[in-house]
Design a protein around this nucleic acid. Structure first.
Length: 437
RNA sequence: GUGGAUGUAGCUUAGUUGGUUAAAGCGCCGGUUUGUGGCACCGGAGACCGUGGGUUCGAGUCCCAUCUUCCACCCCA
């Protein structure tokens, strides 16, 4: 296979044998978000580079080395979005969404692009479902979006995930904390790993979730952010935890979780799984009260989260979560002879007008091959059109599962199929009630 | 960016110490007398053995490089 005919490194094709699962999951997420009042927003895949570089954070890995940035023909610096929050915030400011009723709640699904080395749960093009809530400073909002994330995961049948939450404070209390951290880590300057040594001045917070055994041992005894929170932040975090408990959401406080993007403050959280390899965060999010103002909007508190769709799918598949079956062909109309083939097209058209999935031969194949095909695509019913049927206007419909046959007029075939489908659905419902109690 | 593993038909694999037209199963297409799929039997298409170099009379088999995929670090969803 030549280079040019291969998918670009770190990209994935979702083929028909799986795409229906993605659609199911995406629809479920949107529907669940809607229960909480989140409406879908669609924003461009690319933005001016500054939208990300300034707001995600100049110092972050995402901005420093992972963005797909290029100059367009008008000389603009453009970047393929590495995440959706910054673009959504740009949009709600620019289009005045946050000048309407607050809180404004939006959700989205879309592709993101990061130039990273691919591995399990990490692609260069990946997809996120996320929500953003603008204008709510109250801890009730934090609890609500966490509850929403949890409900989405639970609704989809996710197993074995845990919720970790933390508060990284506001600007003011974080300043004190970072100073304390810095002086603590200074003592271990020579034992810290290379990257952490560099982080010491840049962003000592990041040392806390370094996975090197040496650093994590040192980090284990580092001062805790929770001890440095100002009274307001402390009260806010306490209220979030209280609300979560009241809503029956189980969580662990993990003082070492730190989001990697600069805009977060106060509440941060992630849902983590042990079933999808090293990239274990399925959902991550938090509050970002300063971002809207920073991007030129009115000072508006905000918060949100994002779910990695590919990671979620991995998790669902690895834990054998149930999916509904893909939609199959309902009636396959086999034809014998040229006249019948033309008639078969007409029969299918009429059925489709009634919303029934119908197919017929497009290859000019023999009867046997047509039925073989009908079997392969999982057609529920088949019927054969030949000279006899054309002459007397009656057809035999065969149930491919049971082998039973039914005779009806060609013109009544749509009604017959609807009738049979209903009966069969009722039957399987009865059976499942019987077997499951 | 760093490290480890991998690469033979659509899929899963075989391929002996380098030797003539690279096998098999599954899948795909067709047939077993144009009136009924699943089973069985028969036949067919389909691989420049990831790519590019090199060693050799001769390489899928050896060497080098490169790319992909997978896994981990890093980072994040």
């Amino acid at each position: 296979m030549s280079e040019i005919n291969r998918a670009v490194k770190g990209t994935n094709d979702i083929l028909p044998d799986k795409s229906y699962k993605y659609r199911f999951v995406e629809n479920k997420m949107l529907e669940t978000a809607e229960l909480f009042g989140f409406k879908e927003i669609r924003v461009p895949v690319f933005e001016h580079t500054e939208v990300f570089s300034r707001n995600v954070g100049e110092d972050t890995d995402v901005v420093q080395k992972e963005m797909y940035t290029f100059e367009d023909k008008g000389g603009r610096s453009i970047t393929l979005r590495p995440e959706l929050t910054a673009g959504v915030v740009r949009s709600v400011i620019e289009r005045g969404v946050i000048n309407g009723a607050l809180p404004a709640k939006v959700c989205y699904i879309g592709g993101c692009y990061r130039y990273e080395k691919p591995q399990a749960g990490r692609l260069r093009e990946f997809h996120q479902f996320g929500v953003e809530c603008f204008g709510a400073a109250n801890p009730a909002a934090d609890a609500e979006i966490i509850a929403l994330a949890r409900q989405i995961l639970v609704t989809l049948g996710v197993k074995g995930i845990s919720l970790k939450i933390n508060s990284i404070g506001c600007e003011h209390c974080r300043k004190n904390y970072v100073a304390a951290l810095k002086s603590y880590f200074e003592e271990y300057k020579d034992t810290l790993c290379g990257t952490c040594n560099g982080r010491l001045n840049r962003n000592p917070l990041r040392i806390l979730d370094c996975k090197s055994p040496i650093c994590s041992e040192i980090a284990a005894k580092a001062p805790l952010i929770t001890d440095y929170l100002c009274d307001d932040c402390k009260a806010h975090f306490a209220a979030v935890k209280e609300s979560l408990t009241a809503q029956g959401v189980m969580f662990d406080v993990d003082p070492h979780i730190v989001r990697g993007l600069d805009y977060y403050n106060r509440t941060v959280f992630e849902f983590v799984s042990g079933d999808i390899g090293a990239q274990s965060t399925v959902c991550g999010g938090g509050r970002y009260d300063g971002l809207v103002a920073k991007m030129g909007g009115n000072d508006t508190p905000a918060l949100g989260f994002a779910i990695g769709i590919e990671r979620l799918m991995m998790l669902l598949e690895n834990t054998e979560a149930p999916f509904p079956e893909d939609k199959k062909c309902v009636l396959y109309v086999a034809a014998m002879g040229d006249k019948a083939q033309i008639k078969a097209g007409g029969v299918c058209a009429a059925l489709r007008d009634d919303g029934i999935a119908a197919q017929c031969d497009l290859c000019g194949r023999g009867l046997k091959a047509q039925l073989k095909y009908a079997d392969k695509i999982g057609a529920a019913y088949t019927t054969v059109l030949g000279d006899n049927e054309l002459a007397d206007g009656k057809v035999t419909v065969k149930d491919m599962k049971t082998g039973e046959t039914y005779v009806c007029n060609i013109n009544d075939i749509s009604d017959k199929i609807t009738d049979l489908s209903l009966k069969s659905a009722l039957h399987s419902l009865e059976e499942s009630v019987l077997t499951n109690g």
